[in-house]
């Protein structure tokens, strides 16, 4: 199928994009890479009157460092993130997670900002952004800018702190230099969305875990942190036994969905198993 007719705008600055958004109100849709938006338009699940393409705005794509922070423009593609040395050095968990998104063709077009604002509960990147304490720079009408921590960014299924009339411009990630990382994605077949996945990053001293961050994918309507596991891992050796014991509470307090891929209890079981595997791999990497 092809989308319903729409007007196409390709502003060349953030100001012009905001002005176009303000004028069109809820009749407009932002397009980043289009990799989630175009399937929605083609299936006619949505039919905006205007599509505002951000890809002609210079300055929204690119990766840089500012002191202890890695700054990634919202329009940076998944493959840019995967190929970035800076990200590999300072936010390995993000790099490993983005490498598991979709397939190469979609990673060439899809963007970090688009995936995060889309906020599919089975989307991979939210859990890593949460585990790495990312911050989100959002610009609104008149250029008003605010910064939202990951803990407040994800609101509900397909809903984030980015409001109508606003744009996400940057994702800022505190450097986690030297931390090991693993994104453990459980799927039945290649090229599937996660049934459950665990994003783990740990800091090691000798054989001991001194810090740990764990994000969970598809264990509820938004990405979640397994804070009880993070606490239980502190000071533990990275052995199968110790990590297994600490991972036992991974699903505590979660309410994962039931669907054809597995029911809620199965997902809770998976969360524990995948957390153990992810932490052990992260500790060894």
């Amino acid at each position: 199928m092809i989308p319903v007719q729409f007007d196409y705008l390709a502003p060349e600055s953030v100001e012009d994009a905001l002005a176009a958004l303000a004028e069109a109100g809820d009749d407009a849709k932002i397009m980043a890479g289009g990799q989630s938006l175009l399937p929605v338009l083609r299936l006619r699940l949505n039919s905006p009157e205007k599509v505002i393409d951000l890809s002609r705005i210079p300055g929204l794509r690119g990766i840089s460092e500012e002191g202890d922070t890695i700054v990634i423009g919202a329009m940076t593609t998944h493959s840019d993130v995967v190929e970035s040395e800076l990200v590999g050095q300072h936010a390995l968990l993000l790099q490993k997670t983005v490498a598991e998104v979709a397939d190469p063709q979609i990673r060439h077009r899809g963007t970090l900002g688009g995936a995060l604002v889309h906020a599919d509960p089975a989307g991979d990147i939210g859990a890593a952004a949460l585990a790495l304490d990312a911050e989100f720079v959002i610009v609104g009408p008149g250029g008003a800018t605010r910064t939202v921590p990951a803990s407040e960014f994800f609101v509900d299924l397909f809903e984030t702190a980015v409001q109508e009339g606003e744009l996400l411009t940057q994702v800022r990630i505190p450097k986690h230099t030297g931390w090991g990382a693993r994104y453990e994605k459980f799927v039945r077949v290649a090229h599937q969305w996660a049934i459950v996945a665990v994003a783990a990053t740990v800091k090691m001293e000798g054989g001991t875990i001194t810090e740990a961050r764990i994000g969970l994918t598809n264990m509820g309507s938004i990405p979640l942190r397994a804070t009880s596991v993070e606490a239980a891992l502190l000071g533990q050796p990275a052995t199968e036994e110790a990590v297994k014991a600490a991972s036992a509470t991974a699903a505590d307090g979660t309410n994962p969905p039931s669907d054809l891929n597995g029911d809620s209890d199965y997902r809770k079981h998976l969360a524990g198993v995948l957390t153990r595997r992810a932490v052990l791999a992260a500790a060894g990497s």
């Binding site: 199928m1 196409y8 390709a10 289009g34 990799q35 175009l38 399937p39 083609r42 299936l43 393409d53 890809s55 493959s79 397939d103 190469p104 063709q105 979609i106 060439h108 077009r109 090229h191």
Partner: peptide, 27 residues
């Protein structure tokens, strides 16, 4: 396909592979 899953439509855009059913001509 209608869902951007199959890859039959793959072309190169500026030297990188993309699914041409999931790109607008205006892009």
């Amino acid at each position: 396909c209608d869902t951007s899953n199959c890859g039959a439509c793959t072309v190169h855009l500026d030297g990188r592979s993309v699914k041409s059913c999931n790109v607008l001509a205006v892009q």
